[in-house]
């Protein structure tokens, strides 16, 4: 009884002039707490905020199984290491691959490894979107006061993916240490630049691929062929691939800007296609452009989902 009275009392606070006791959120929460206008900036802020909270929940979830976490993190590291082991094995038979030495290939490999690892860590579960559409759990995200992209990106956030980044960093570190090139400050700066803009480019591919799954729910393998497939492709020097393929990943899906274009400048090698030198410094722009495009594709995908519901 006392409990009920207390509830009634709190309801009679100023601001609740409605006789039913239900206030609008503005009244209930006060102006400063209310999210306010829904402009692009506040959407970004809300998205990052939601992302942080959901990612933290997933970390807690995985920590419920600590042993399993440790094993999968190690497994992630080991599996990607085997990847590089293949390249080492190749070099035990040959001295160069497409004209590139082991440290040079390791450099290409390391940049892609870290860039892809970062993307995989941040939005690695985008390929689950199709199954969320199929089983209807996407709807539960759409009734939350947070951007859907942030919620989907944070889905299944897993720290074990640090294993891939760690492995990439090892290889990259080895390459930088043994590479026989004249390091200028510009070339040194280009390494983190490549990694970050590379992560942006991969991120855009992940998001666009996710958006595609609004239309084709079983397309996760198509997406994976671009992301994982593209990642593997870039581990090798462009000189071993056909010109058409190199053109494709330079001009159509600009994966070449993750490492090939800028890294060949760092290594002092000519790019197989006829590109001016300044193109080597454009990855941040390409990355930003890709992200904008991916954002538009995502919006179109979500709009199509909301109008078809399938």
């Amino acid at each position: 009884m006392a409990e009920t009275e207390q509830v009634n009392e709190t309801r009679a606070t100023p601001g609740s002039h409605s006789s039913h006791g239900s206030r609008s959120p503005q009244e209930a929460y006060g102006e400063d707490l209310w999210p306010g206008p829904y402009g692009p900036y506040s959407r970004l802020r809300d998205g990052l905020r939601a992302y942080r909270m959901i990612a933290a929940m997933w970390i807690r979830s995985t920590m419920a199984y600590r042993a399993s976490f440790a094993m999968t993190a190690f497994g992630n590291f080991a599996a990607t290491s085997f990847d590089f082991l293949t390249i080492l094995l190749m070099f035990s038979q040959v001295d160069e691959l497409g004209g590139y030495s082991l440290p040079e290939v390791a450099f290409l490999y390391g940049v892609v490894g870290v860039a892809f690892g970062l993307t995989d860590l941040v939005i690695g579960s985008m390929d689950r979107l199709g199954s969320r559409v199929r089983d209807g759990t996407l709807d539960t995200l759409l009734v939350r006061p947070a951007p859907v992209l942030a919620q989907v990106a944070a889905d299944k956030f897993a720290l074990r993916r640090l294993g891939r980044i760690a492995q990439g960093l090892f290889v990259l570190g080895y390459a930088v240490a043994v590479l026989d090139i004249a390091w200028t400050p510009l070339k040194v700066l280009m390494v983190p630049m490549m990694v970050l803009s590379g992560a942006m480019i991969f991120g855009a591919v992940f998001v666009a691929g996710g958006a595609f799954q609004f239309v084709a729910q079983d397309a996760s393998e198509v997406q994976n062929s671009f992301t994982y497939g593209g990642g593997t492709l870039l581990q090798y020097p462009p000189s071993i691939f056909a010109k058409e393929l190199v053109r494709g990943v330079t001009f159509v899906v600009p994966l070449a800007f993750v490492n090939w274009v800028p890294a060949l400048y760092v290594l002092g090698r000519p790019y197989p296609l006829d590109l001016p030198t300044w193109v080597a410094f454009t990855p941040p722009l390409v990355g930003a452009g890709c992200c904008v495009l991916a954002g538009l594709v995502w919006r179109a995908g979500l709009r199509s989902y909301r109008s078809t519901g399938s």
Binding site: P25, D135, T137, V143, P145
Partner: peptide, 19 residues
């Protein structure tokens, strides 16, 4: 959608939103 989300509650009988 997001403004409305603050003012409505939704329970999907067959899909839990709990962790």
């Amino acid at each position: 959608r997001t403004r409305l989300a603050h003012r409505i509650g939704v329970v999907f009988g067959q899909r839990t939103t709990l962790w």
